[in-house]
Computed example of a mutant assay.
Amino acid sequence: MQQLLAATLLLAASAGALAHVTLETPEAAAGGSYKAVLRVPHGCDGSATTALRVILPDGFHLAKPMPKAGWQLSTHRQAVTPFDSHGSLIREDVTEIEWRGGPLPDAFYDEFVFRGTLPASGEQAWFKVLQQCERGETRWDETPAGDAKASHPAPAVRLLPPAGHLH
């Protein structure tokens, strides 16, 4: 009986973890190149997903989204703190990415991909996501405060020390 209870609790915990928009790779080196794979496991309360907008964290640079068949792709650029990229001073960069179209039915799962350079410092980089559906929307934009669990957590990547950096 205890084994059945433990298995049920494990299954419930893993189902809850799958209920959120998450990143496939949860940790990477600060300042390094990163391929973000956003996993979208469901729609909004049974309604199909029709758009996904990602607000990139401060310090995430040179974002390039992957086109997705059946979806229109757009980016929003704005002025950023200037930074060097291979000898060029970058003053404007992508700060948001949006895929619009689909639809992605609630019963199906899909992934949305982009790449870029992670912030050079910090503990975590939070990618705030707005999931729009045929009926309603879900904001995956909460960051934890202390020990409190967020009900709609933003996908995050834990930033590790850069390769070759000794702690």
Results as ranks from 00 to 15, higher is better:
residue 3 Q to T: 12
residue 32 G to I: 01
residue 29 A to F: 07
residue 146 G to R: 04
residue 103 P to S: 15
residue 129 V to H: 02
residue 29 A to D: 05
residue 18 L to I: 01
residue 128 K to G: 01
residue 84 D to N: 13
residue 34 Y to K: 10
residue 34 Y to E: 03
residue 31 G to S: 11
residue 78 Q to N: 13
residue 87 G to F: 08
residue 62 L to T: 08
residue 67 P to A: 01
residue 148 A to F: 08
residue 83 F to L: 09
residue 104 L to R: 11
residue 154 A to R: 02
residue 38 L to M: 10
residue 42 H to W: 01
residue 106 D to L: 10
residue 96 E to G: 01
residue 27 E to V: 00
residue 103 P to H: 09
residue 52 L to N: 01
residue 59 G to Y: 06
residue 138 T to H: 06
residue 88 S to A: 09
residue 102 G to F: 07
residue 130 L to K: 11
residue 19 A to Y: 01
residue 137 E to S: 14
residue 145 A to H: 14
residue 125 A to Q: 03
residue 90 I to R: 02
residue 124 Q to T: 12
residue 17 A to G: 12
residue 22 T to Y: 00
residue 59 G to Q: 04
residue 32 G to H: 05
residue 120 A to K: 14
residue 41 P to C: 12
residue 94 V to P: 10
residue 93 D to G: 13
residue 55 I to H: 10
residue 6 A to W: 03
residue 87 G to W: 04
residue 68 K to A: 08
residue 75 T to G: 10
residue 34 Y to N: 02
residue 85 S to V: 08
residue 130 L to S: 04
residue 99 W to L: 04
residue 28 A to G: 12
residue 152 H to A: 06
residue 97 I to R: 04
residue 133 C to N: 00
residue 46 G to L: 02
residue 107 A to I: 12
residue 65 P to A: 14
residue 100 R to M: 09
residue 114 F to D: 10
residue 62 L to Q: 08
residue 155 P to F: 06
residue 5 L to K: 15
residue 59 G to H: 08
residue 7 A to W: 06
residue 126 W to M: 06
residue 73 L to N: 01
residue 77 R to E: 15
residue 167 H to M: 04
residue 119 P to I: 03
residue 89 L to M: 13
residue 88 S to V: 14
residue 128 K to E: 13
residue 91 R to D: 03
residue 8 T to S: 13
residue 120 A to H: 11
residue 75 T to E: 15
residue 2 Q to N: 15
residue 144 P to I: 03
residue 98 E to W: 00
residue 80 V to I: 15
residue 128 K to M: 09
residue 151 S to N: 05
residue 34 Y to C: 02
residue 145 A to C: 06
residue 13 A to S: 09
residue 25 T to G: 02
residue 9 L to K: 13
residue 109 Y to V: 13
